[in-house]
Amino acid sequence: MGAARAFDKLIGGVGMRRGRRNPDELRMGDAVDFFRVEACEPPGLLRLRAEMRVPGEAWLEWRLSEVDDGVELRQRARFHPKDLLGRLYWWALIPVHKVIFRGLVANLADEARIRAIGGDERKRR
């Protein structure tokens, strides 16, 4: 992700120069890395709007819903391209985004499991 941060800053984006207001709580308008919290409705919805420089508008969204055997986590990435360049950008990055988003949702699920059993992996390190 280091190259992405450097490139974003190079072309005038926000990069990663911002800190979090609170490491454990989010609210509307908070900055999170390249994103801004657009919707935060605990415990079921979190939507982040990308503030990085891209040829269009981008969002990441997570929804939680109860199912018979626990909780289902759904992750959705949306991109609305500005023009042909935006479409080419999105299609070119699909393979990279698949890897990044799979890892992201896996990490979120792992963290939720740890917190559900009352542990905190950071304390064990």
Rank of each mutant, 00 (worst) to 15 (best):
P43A: 04
E72W: 12
H80V: 13
N22I: 04
W59Y: 13
E66L: 03
A109S: 06
S65R: 09
H97V: 04
E25V: 05
R47K: 10
L73K: 10
V71R: 01
E25F: 04
L64H: 02
E25N: 06
R18E: 12
E72T: 05
L46K: 10
R27Q: 14
M1G: 13
V37K: 10
R78G: 10
L46M: 05
A106G: 06
E51K: 02
D120S: 08
V32Y: 05
L104G: 13
I94N: 03
A3V: 08
R18Y: 14
M28E: 14
A50P: 00
R63H: 07
L10I: 07
E41M: 10
L85C: 01
A112R: 10
E41P: 07
A92K: 06
R5M: 08
R125T: 11
R115I: 02
A3W: 11
F7R: 03
W59H: 12
G44D: 15
P81R: 04
I11T: 07
Y89D: 03
R17K: 12
D30L: 01
H80D: 13
A6K: 14
R78W: 03
E41G: 00
D83I: 02
L46E: 07
E57V: 00
L104E: 09
L104W: 08
F101K: 01
M16Q: 10
A109H: 08
G119D: 13
P95R: 04
R36A: 01
N22W: 07
V67T: 12
L84C: 06
K9G: 04
G29R: 05
R78T: 14
G29K: 05
R36D: 09
V99R: 14
R47P: 01
A112W: 10
P95M: 08
V14S: 06
L46Q: 09
G119A: 12
G44N: 13
A112F: 14
P43M: 06
E38D: 12
R124W: 04
C40F: 15
R36I: 12
I11M: 07
Q75W: 10
L88A: 11
R47G: 00
G12Q: 05
R53V: 15
V105I: 15
E61C: 05
R78P: 02
L104I: 00
V71P: 00
A4N: 06
R47W: 00
R113N: 03
L108G: 03
E41K: 13
F101M: 06
